[in-house]
Write a protein that binds this DNA or RNA. Structure first.
Length: 313
DNA sequence: GTCCAGGATTCAG
DNA sequence: CTGAATCATGGA
């Protein structure tokens, strides 16, 4: 593989400082799946048709692009919420009264929801079911390399829906997707004839967006919530995955609660930036840094019978 | 070899 | 409606 010709490092201007540890969590913590580190602390990634390098310098973040490939500071600023809109949203979270959330925020100060492309978020989370983040990254990388358009330097864009729909069985097989291959192909077949699907989905209310997303093959409640949060900027979306189940059970005492009920709690308790709270809790839980004020010795903790959710409608 | 993964789907009750 | 079995693959 030919070596990538990088431009010089330049300062990446952000409204709020991002520590190196938070940058790592943001780029490699399961929001996006297209960032890698070759050398320590230097992140290389692709989003949309942008290829970029990012690192935490001594005086804030720095970025670089690939010579001959369009990379702009503006694209990175948008991707990383440089204007600081999410800083204000953090202030709407109940961290003053919620010590668990407060500790989770302190564990990754400045953590933000990446403003990803809907296409990228949907592909990534179609691959995510029952998989670890490392393996999701490998699947997505294989999809790009096998089917996506070359962007230079050996890096590729993600395949379009048309490219995915046209992929052969053996091509998908080579991406180690397992049963998720059918999810990707099915969704690709639905969306390949809708070039403006993302704009159409973006125009929906969040409730309708989640519903529309769940109509796609391989998209259930959790994947829909992730795509709404990471791809459509719906900060109120509250994905409930295995880590959030653990976090809300251990730290809040909600043992044995069904995911749908935990999602209901999350939205009500955390409010319009529930998804941001979720990401802080997710990161803290995964790092084993979650406060557990209600935790009991393991032999005492048993799943309680789930209380029945209120029937609606 | 066994276990499990940022779950979704299908099926039985 | 809820709960359980099943799904394909690879890393730990």
């Amino acid at each position: 593989m030919k070596a990538v010709a990088w431009t010089a490092w330049r300062p990446l201007r952000l409204a709020d400082p991002v520590p190196a540890q938070t940058l790592r969590e943001q780029l490699d913590g399961g929001q996006a799946f297209r960032w890698n580190t070759a050398e320590d602390g230097v992140w290389t990634g692709v989003f949309g048709r942008t290829v970029a390098g990012v690192r935490a310098g001594s005086n804030g973040l720095e970025w670089r692009g690939v010579v001959g490939v369009s990379t702009t500071e503006a694209a990175l600023q948008s991707y990383l919420d440089a204007a600081g809109g999410q800083a204000g949203l953090v202030e709407t979270l109940p961290w003053r009264s919620d010590a668990v959330l407060r500790a989770a925020i302190a564990a990754n100060p400045g953590l933000r929801i990446l403003r990803q492309d809907p296409h990228e978020a949907l592909i990534g989370f179609l691959c995510s079911s029952n998989k670890r983040i490392l393996q999701i990254r490998q699947m997505v990388a294989q999809l790009a390399t096998t089917l996506g358009e070359p962007l230079g330097g050996g890096l590729h864009a993600l395949p379009t829906w048309a490219q995915l729909a046209a992929a052969t069985d053996s091509q998908l097989k080579a991406c180690a997707l397992g049963y998720r291959a059918a999810f990707l192909r099915g969704t690709a077949q639905r969306l390949q004839s809708r070039p403006h699907w993302a704009e159409e989905f973006q125009a929906l209310t969040t409730a309708d967006l989640l519903s529309e997303l769940q109509g796609l093959p391989g998209v259930g409640p959790k994947v829909a919530a992730c795509v709404a949060l990471f791809g459509f900027g719906r900060l109120e979306s509250f994905p409930v995955d295995t880590w959030v189940v653990q976090a809300l059970a251990g730290a809040y005492g909600f043992h044995g609660w069904a995911p749908a009920r935990l999602e209901e709690f999350g939205r009500a308790h955390f409010g319009p930036a529930a998804g941001l709270a979720q990401q802080y809790l997710f990161a803290a839980a995964r790092a084993g840094r979650l406060l557990q004020p209600f935790a009991l010795p393991a032999e005492v903790v048993k799943p309680r019978p789930k209380s029945r959710g209120r029937a609606r409608r």
